[in-house]
Amino acid sequence: MSIARPTDPIADIYSQHHGWLLRWLRGKLNCADQAADLAQDTFLRLLTAPPEQPHSLREPRAYLTTVAQRLVIDHYRRHSLEQAWLDTLARLPEPMAPSPEDRLLVLETLHRIDAMLDGLLPPVRSAFLLSQLEGLGYAEIATRLGISERTVKRYMVQAFERCILLIA
Rank of each mutant, 00 (worst) to 15 (best):
L71T: 01
L71W: 06
L71C: 00
L71Q: 08
L71A: 02
L71Y: 00
L71N: 04
L71E: 01
V72I: 08
V72K: 05
I73S: 02
I73W: 07
I73N: 03
I73P: 00
I73G: 00
I73C: 02
I73L: 10
D74G: 12
H75A: 02
H75C: 05
H75S: 06
H75Q: 06
H75V: 05
H75W: 15
Y76K: 12
Y76S: 03
R77C: 10
R78N: 10
R78W: 00
R78A: 11
R78G: 05
R78E: 00
H79F: 00
H79V: 02
S80T: 12
S80V: 02
S80F: 09
L81N: 08
L81E: 09
L81Q: 09
L81F: 00
E82Q: 12
E82T: 11
E82P: 01
Q83V: 03
Q83R: 14
Q83M: 04
A84S: 09
A84G: 09
A84L: 00
W85A: 04
W85I: 01
W85F: 15
L86K: 11
L86Y: 11
D87V: 01
D87A: 06
D87E: 07
D87F: 01
T88Y: 15
T88V: 02
T88E: 09
L89K: 12
L89D: 06
L89M: 07
L89Q: 10
L89V: 02
A90S: 14
A90I: 06
A90H: 12
A90N: 14
R91D: 07
R91W: 01
R91C: 04
R91N: 01
L92R: 01
L92Q: 10
L92C: 07
L92D: 01
L92I: 02
L92K: 03
P93W: 05
P93T: 02
E94Q: 12
E94S: 07
P95N: 01
P95K: 08
P95D: 04
M96Y: 13
M96W: 11
A97S: 08
A97E: 06
A97G: 03
P98T: 09
P98M: 11
P98Y: 10
P98S: 09
S99L: 06
S99E: 05
S99I: 10
P100D: 15
P100L: 13
P100R: 13
P100W: 12
E101I: 06
E101H: 11
E101M: 07
E101Q: 14
E101T: 13
E101R: 07
D102E: 15
D102Y: 00
D102F: 00
D102K: 11
R103Q: 15
R103T: 14
L104E: 13
L104H: 08
L104T: 14
L104C: 09
L104Q: 14
L104D: 10
L105G: 04
L105W: 13
L105D: 13
L105H: 13
L105F: 08
L105N: 10
V106E: 11
L107Y: 03
L107C: 09
L107R: 07
E108D: 13
E108I: 03
E108W: 05
E108T: 05
T109L: 12
T109S: 15
L110Q: 13
L110M: 14
L110A: 14
L110Y: 14
L110D: 05
L110T: 02
L110P: 05
H111T: 06
H111L: 12
H111Q: 13
H111M: 11
R112C: 06
R112M: 09
R112E: 09
I113L: 15
I113Q: 13
I113G: 03
I113P: 02
I113D: 07
D114H: 14
D114M: 12
D114I: 00
